[in-house]
Amino acid sequence: MAELRLEELSASNISAANALTLKPGQEQFITPVSYSAAAAVNDPNMTWQRVVVDGDHEVVGFIMGSFDPDADDEFRSILWRINVDAEVQGRGIGQFAVDALADEARGRGQDRLYVIWETGELGPEAFFLRTGFTPIGETQYGETIGALDL
C-alpha cells in the first residue's frame, strides 16, 4: 500500500467509488455509493463524504458520515456508510477512514461518534468492534447502535 489520503466525493471519483468490489456475502450489508451521494444533496453542509485514495489515484474505500447538532444523540455525529474494496480489506483502510471521520467529529465539537449496523454472518460487526465502537443499544428494528467515545 502506498500512502493513504482522503478526497471529497466528487464527479471525478464517484465512478471509482461505485466500482469498489465486495467479498461474497457482504452485498446485503452495503448500499451503493451513488445512493449515499444522492442522500447528501438534501443537506451538503451536514454530510461528510470521502473516498480513500491509495497512492496517487486508486480509490480503495468510501466513508460517509453526518453531523447534525439538533438531532437525537445517536444521529448528531454518525457514520452512515463505509466500503473498502474486497482486495484490500484487512490492511487498515477502514480504520484510517473511521479515524478521519472521528477527527472531523472532534473538530465539530462532538464527543461521540455513532454507527448503526445489522448483525449477521459476514456483517460489519467485527469491523466496528475492532475500530473501537461499543454496542450501546438497539434500534426498533433490531439493529445494533454502537458508540465510539472521542
Rank of each mutant, 00 (worst) to 15 (best):
M1V: 10
A2V: 10
A2H: 10
A2I: 08
A2D: 13
E3M: 15
E3H: 12
E3Y: 11
E3W: 10
E3D: 15
L4F: 06
R5M: 05
R5Y: 02
L6G: 03
E7P: 00
L9W: 08
S10R: 03
S12Y: 07
S12E: 11
I14Q: 03
I14S: 05
N18F: 06
N18T: 01
T21M: 09
L22I: 02
L22F: 09
P24L: 05
P24I: 07
G25H: 08
Q26P: 03
E27Q: 13
F29M: 04
I30R: 12
I30K: 15
T31F: 11
T31C: 08
P32W: 03
P32A: 06
P32M: 08
P32Y: 04
V33H: 08
S34G: 04
S34F: 13
Y35K: 15
S36N: 13
A38D: 14
A38H: 15
V41M: 11
N42L: 10
N42W: 12
D43C: 09
M46P: 01
T47D: 11
W48N: 15
W48K: 15
V51C: 01
V53M: 02
G55R: 06
D56Q: 11
H57A: 11
E58Y: 10
V59R: 00
V60R: 01
G61F: 01
I63F: 06
G65V: 07
G65I: 06
S66D: 13
F67C: 10
F67W: 09
D68N: 14
P69F: 04
P69K: 12
D70Y: 02
A71N: 00
E74S: 13
F75A: 12
R76S: 03
R76W: 00
S77M: 06
S77P: 04
I78D: 03
L79S: 07
W80R: 15
R81M: 09
R81I: 05
R81Q: 12
I82E: 02
N83P: 03
E87K: 15
Q89L: 08
G90A: 02
G90V: 03
G92I: 06
I93V: 15
G94Y: 00
Q95P: 05
V98Y: 00
D99T: 07
A100Y: 08
A100D: 10
L101I: 14
A102C: 07
A102M: 02
A102I: 03
D103M: 07
E104Y: 07
E104S: 08
R106A: 11
G107E: 03
R108H: 02
R108S: 03
G109Y: 04
Q110V: 04
R112S: 11
V115H: 02
V115R: 04
W117M: 11
